[in-house]
Design a protein around this nucleic acid. Structure first.
Length: 271
DNA sequence: TTAATCACCTGAGGGC
DNA sequence: TGCCCTCAGGTGATTA
């Protein structure tokens, strides 16, 4: 399931293949993604050149001179760079074919992903304009998190997974970061101190950087654009380990629901 | 205004 | 072996 490190890995993986490429055509085999893919955009895209590939939160932006293709991988989305005559597999919904006969292929079994064409500054689009800071940027600090959290009564885990607060922190990294910071995921935001916010932000940044370095986390669904798995799952300390001993205190890790998401925690180490 | 819940969707895994 | 059921999860929309 792609989170920020996975999307960053894909972004870095596809950029060398698509930067400067001229779009020949768009093939939409299945338009039923999170939002219907308008087949009419194929005419608009033909002839445009991808100037660069960037990322905002979990959105990939393929930027051209007159707009951007915005891709979200959802829960199970994968992007691969393949020769255009590569056989179609199940769930290969979209092909973006370049004049060099290279194809950017979007595969998404669960179809929670998105493929949009935005004819303006994508960062002003409603989907992206309200997003919080990038977690690895200087603007995401302990002080920022504390200021946002101090008047809020939500569970801290739901809070740091809210894209309006900070982008790109999904269930896996929120779970791991809260364990590393020793904070119970169900604690109300307004009961988290500035010192704890500093520690939590430090851990979020550390864990995300580490995950990016090894290419993301492979659980059931994620492979990079080159088909390689990420290796961060081998470093997870709590996620997916309910019932197993805590690596710090040896007591059994427990599983609970926070904001309709499964969370694993150590009740001894997280308060 | 804020927070919680719902809906979307399919593959994996377990039970029978 | 095959069928059925449950679970997993990101995020916008809806509801309380």
């Amino acid at each position: 399931m792609p989170e920020l490190p996975e999307v960053e890995t894909v972004c870095r993986g596809i950029a060398p293949h698509v930067d400067g490429q001229e779009i020949q055509k768009l093939i939409v085999r299945n338009s039923r993604l999170r939002w219907p893919v308008k087949r009419s955009i194929a005419k608009q895209l033909a002839g445009l050149t991808i100037e660069n590939v960037t990322r905002r939160g979990k959105y990939l932006l393929l930027n051209t001179s007159c707009g951007s293709i915005v891709i979200h991988l959802g829960m199970s989305g994968k992007i691969s760079i393949v020769p255009m005559d590569t056989p179609i597999r199940k769930h290969d919904h979209i092909d973006l074919i370049f004049t060099t006969k290279i194809c950017l292929r979007f595969n998404d079994p669960r179809r929670f992903g998105a493929f949009l064409w935005i004819e303006a500054d994508p960062l002003q689009h409603p989907l992206l304009s309200n997003l919080g800071p990038e977690p690895l940027s200087a603007s995401f600090s302990g002080k920022y998190l504390f200021e946002q959290a101090k008047t809020c009564k939500r569970a801290i885990k739901s809070f740091i997974m809210d894209g309006k607060i900070v982008v790109g922190v999904g269930n896996i990294y929120a779970t791991e970061s809260l364990f590393a910071a020793g904070i119970h995921p169900n604690r109300s935001c307004n009961r988290v101190t500035l010192a704890e916010c500093n520690e939590l932000v430090k851990e979020i940044k550390r864990i995300l950087r580490k995950a990016i370095k090894v290419g993301g986390t492979t659980l059931k669904d994620f492979l990079s654009s080159e088909g390689k798995p990420g290796y961060f799952s081998q470093k997870l300390k709590v996620y997916g380990r309910a019932g197993e001993p805590c690596l710090q205190c040896k007591s059994a890790l427990v599983s609970m629901q926070v904001g309709q998401r499964t969370t694993v925690l150590c009740e001894q180490c997280q308060r």
